[in-house]
C-alpha cells in the first residue's frame, strides 16, 4: 500500500479522477458511465500513440515523425479504399500497420546503422512523410463519400456496449503491458535506456533494440492512421498536424523520463487520459477552448518539475556528493 502511494501513476490517477469529479460538480452527468466511455473513446488514439512513443523514449530516442507517419498511412489506406472498395477493412488495417512499420523501420535503420541522432532523423522524416502525402494524393482530400461504409464503421461498431475504437486501445494497451513487463524485448528496451554500456555487457544489442522500438512506434502510428481517417472521415495533408508534440506531452505528463529508461504503460495511458479529460472538460465548465493549449502547456511544465524531484541529477551534484560521481 505504501508502495502504491509513492508511485507517480497513482497520483496522476488521483488528479484525473479529481478533475472528473470537479467537472461533475459544475455539470452533473459529466461522470456518467456513458460520458466517461465517450472520453475514453476520444482519447483512445492518443493512448495508442503515447504507448508507441514511450517505447522509443525509453531507449533514449524520440520519434517526432509519428503524426506524419499517421497522416501518410491514413491517406494510403483511404486511397486504397476509394479505389478498391471491395478489399475488406481488416486487410486495410493490416496494410496500415505494415505501412507504418516500414516508415518506422526507415527511421530506426537510420538511427541504428548510421548512428544519426533520433531527433535529427525524425525531424527530417516529419517533413518528408507529410510532403509525400501531397504527392500521392495530388493535393486532394479523401472525403466521406469516397469511403466505403465498412471503412467508416470499423471504429464505430459497438461490442459489449463499447465502440471498437475503445477495444483496439484496450487490446493494444494489454498487449503492450505484457510486452514491456513479460518479454525479453520489453526488458531490453528498459535496459538500453537505463544504461546502454551495461546493456552491451549483458548481451543486448543496443542498436537493434532501438530499431525495434522505432518499428513498434511506426506500426502503432500506422494503425492509428487508419483509425484517424475512419473516425474523422477525412484524409488530407493536414491530418494530425502538430500532433507529434502532443504525443510527447502525454508521455511526459505520464512520468516517462525523456532521458530514457523510466516510465510505465499505466503512466503513458494516464498522461493521454489527462490531456483527453482537459479537452472534454473545458467546454463543459464554460471555459473557452482557447484556454486548452495554455493549460496543457502549464501541465507539462508542472509534470516535469514534479517528476524531476525523483530523477537522478547526473553530474549535477558532483561538487557536494563526490561518491555518486560515475
Amino acid at each position: 500500500m505504501k508502495g502504491i502511494l509513492r508511485t507517480r501513476e497513482f497520483w496522476l490517477a488521483v488528479i484525473v479522477v479529481a478533475m472528473i469529479a470537479a467537472t461533475n460538480f459544475r455539470s452533473p452527468g459529466f461522470a456518467s458511465p456513458a460520458n466517461l466511455a465517450g472520453i475514453f473513446n476520444d482519447t483512445a488514439m492518443l493512448m495508442i500513440l503515447a504507448l508507441g512513443q514511450m517505447a522509443v523514449i525509453l531507449t533514449r530516442s524520440i520519434d517526432l515523425s509519428m503524426a506524419s507517419n499517421l497522416a501518410l498511412t491514413g491517406m494510403i489506406v483511404a486511397l486504397i479504399n476509394a479505389a478498391y472498395p471491395a478489399i475488406p477493412v481488416p486487410v486495410l488495417m493490416v496494410i496500415a500497420a505494415l505501412c507504418g512499420l516500414l516508415l518506422g523501420a526507415f527511421n530506426g535503420a537510420l538511427v541504428w546503422l548510421l548512428g544519426i541522432p533520433a531527433i535529427v532523423v525524425t525531424l527530417g522524416t516529419l517533413t518528408i512523410f507529410r510532403g509525400i502525402i501531397f504527392l500521392i494524393a495530388g493535393g486532394k482530400w479523401v472525403n466521406a463519400d469516397a469511403m466505403s461504409t465498412g471503412f467508416v464503421q470499423y471504429t464505430r461498431i459497438e461490442v459489449l456496449g463499447l465502440p471498437l475504437l475503445t477495444w483496439y486501445a484496450i487490446v493494444i494497451a494489454a498487449a503492450f503491458f505484457v510486452m514491456m513487463t513479460r518479454t525479453s524485448l520489453g526488458r531490453a528496451i528498459y535496459a538500453v535506456g537505463i544504461n546502454p554500456t551495461a546493456s552491451v555487457y549483458a548481451g543486448i544489442d543496443v542498436g537493434r533494440t532501438t530499431f525495434l522500438a522505432f518499428c513498434i512506434s511506426g506500426m502503432l502510428a500506422g494503425f492509428c492512421g487508419y483509425l484517424w481517417v475512419s473516425r474523422y472521415v477525412i484524409g488530407s495533408v493536414e491530418v494530425a498536424k502538430g500532433y507529434e508534440l502532443t504525443i510527447v506531452a502525454a508521455c511526459v505528463i505520464g512520468g516517462i523520463s525523456i532521458a530514457g529508461g523510466v516510465g510505465t504503460v499505466a503512466g503513458a495511458l494516464l498522461g493521454a487520459l489527462f490531456l483527453g479529460v482537459i479537452n472534454v472538460a473545458l467546454p463543459v465548465i464554460n471555459i473557452s477552448p482557447f484556454w486548452q493549449m495554455a493549460i496543457s502547456g502549464a501541465a507539462i511544465i508542472l509534470a516535469v518539475a514534479l517528476n524531476a524531484r525523483g530523477d537522478k541529477r547526473g553530474g549535477r551534484l558532483i561538487l557536494r556528493q563526490t561518491e555518486t560521481a560515475s
Partner: peptide, 23 residues
Amino acid sequence: RLGLPSIVVTIGTMSFFRGISFI
C-alpha cells in the same frame, strides 16, 4: 534553476506561450 531537461521544458512552454496568445 530547477534542473529540468530543456527539450521537455520548451515543449511545455511552447504550448504555454502560444496558449496565452490564443487566450
